[in-house]
Design a protein around this nucleic acid. Structure first.
Length: 120
RNA sequence: CAAGUUGACCGGGUGAUCGCGUGUUAUCGCGGGCUAUGGCUCCGAUAAUGCGAGGAAAGUCCGCGCUCCAGAGGGCACGGUGCUGGCUAACAGCCAGACGGGGCGACUCGGUGGAAUAGUGCAACAGAGAGGCGUAUUGCCCCGGUCCAGAUGGACCAGGGUGAGGGUGAAACGGUGCGGUAAGAGCGCACCGGCGCAGGUGGUGACACCGGCGGCCAGGCAAACCCCACCGGGAGCAAGACCAAGCAGGAACGAGGGGCGGCCCGUCCCAUUAAGUUCCGGGUAGGUUGCUAGAGGCGGCGCGUAAGUGUCGUUCCAGAUAGAUGAUCACCGCCUGCCGGGAUUUCGGUUCCGACAGGUACAGAACGCGGCUUACAGGUUGGCUUGAGUC
RNA sequence: GUGGCUGUGGUGCAGUGGUUAGCAUGCCUGACUGUGGAUCAGGAGGUCGAGGGUUCAAAUCCGUCCAGCCACC
């Protein structure tokens, strides 16, 4: 995930938290807001009560990997924040992939002309 | 071979497909800044290439470097350390030793200054008595009286002596023997143990050993107050420096205010031409730097019992900032259990091969370093001790 | 990064060296009542966060570790 596609500023996160549209799942929450740019930007939030530093780092890396793979299939021009919840700690990588895919479908962020579902 | 003890070290590997951060070089950008129009610099992209978590990176329990507080001085308070000698930048660390406890032993554990020579305090319950020369319950002994028996004895009462026996307690003021006595007692003597005094020998020292003298009454708790010796100024990389952006001031009090933050002294700065304080209101939440070449790693040699240290050679080894150092898959390795087969056997086991199942830890740099402490699947290896057997 | 607080029956708290760790509430049993509540009587329930050390003796004193919470920049 290159630096230009990451959310890096405090005000961006504050804007997402105040005005973002939210889709929830048992293990993950996604907050979305248009950013007026030609590309998407992503942020990953793993709070301290999820576990120690090793656990938080691992979850953030796996989430980032899933989103990196889905990135070419998404509609551009949005900021997205992914907030991990406690059950995510024990989730396998394919299951995590399915969760992210279904959440982004709910949010209607998958490009209609996309080459297709990678799961198929 | 078994049991134990003590150090040193490692802590997954290979491949495939996608990725991330950073250094260097090159090229590019209707990109930004400066310009003497040669260029320089910043940012971004692409390519090549180098590097990219730990033994604890953890907990934050200590110590130091570094930075700022004008210079950083004295006293008190407060806090810390506490056997000796050494090492170190420093330490509550390490090394070597002393003393005391544990273990057959290798070895190991210890916050280990001061308790008659400063003083104060504490010790429940039990017990006669618990901290000063204090006590008399039972016991032992003596004297006197009464009664019984008449044998020199026994019972009771009053007085006195005693701290040896029993008993209480965590702790009761040395132990053994002889003398002594009405019974006893360091009351006296000998030896042993402890304490003190002065001395000798060895050791840098803690201390050890030796003989002498003294009187046997001075016990425990300072992780109780305290005393003694030594050490400590405060804050922390969100320290500090630079750049950019942005805003709006008003009211009241006011002769003092502030710098070292607990206090005082000393000293300096700013004020009385309005410094400062409080309240209301307004603005900012960005970037660069500090930032990694260091008490650095590895190896040789010299010195030292060692911790270490000197010198020579060699090497460059993470610098993120919503926070990189990875994700997925495959195969292998390692460990445990069970099953099958082979070898060996002192019939307890040991070992090799194969299959299946499960497991593969603790844990993520955030200025750096030295320690300590705690967590940790499993593995490699050196020394030493004790016991058994064989030659 | 720095400083501080708390941990004791199910719950909320006291106890800060000394006999068997208390109090309130809750819980159980019985009495009272037609029944319940209230009331009365009796009772159970504690590794004092964990593990070391000092002491004759530790919930209490001193280190280490664990968990939770707060404050400041």
């Amino acid at each position: 995930m290159q630096r230009q596609y990451r959310l890096r500023r405090r005000e961006d996160f504050a804007r997402l938290r105040k005005q973002g549209r939210v889709w929830r799942h048992r293990v993950l929450v996604v907050s979305v807001i248009p950013n007026g740019l030609a590309h998407n930007r992503y942020g990953f939030i793993t709070s301290k009560h999820l576990g120690k530093a090793v656990v938080r780092n691992r979850m953030r890396r796996r989430l980032r990997e899933v989103v990196r793979r889905l990135h070419p299939l998404l509609k551009p021009g949005y900021d997205l924040a992914f907030i991990a919840r406690q059950p995510l700690v024990d989730l396998s990588f394919p299951a995590l992939y399915d969760v992210v895919w279904s959440l982004l479908q709910q949010a209607n962020l998958i490009q209609p002309a996309s080459p297709g579902d990678l799961q198929s």
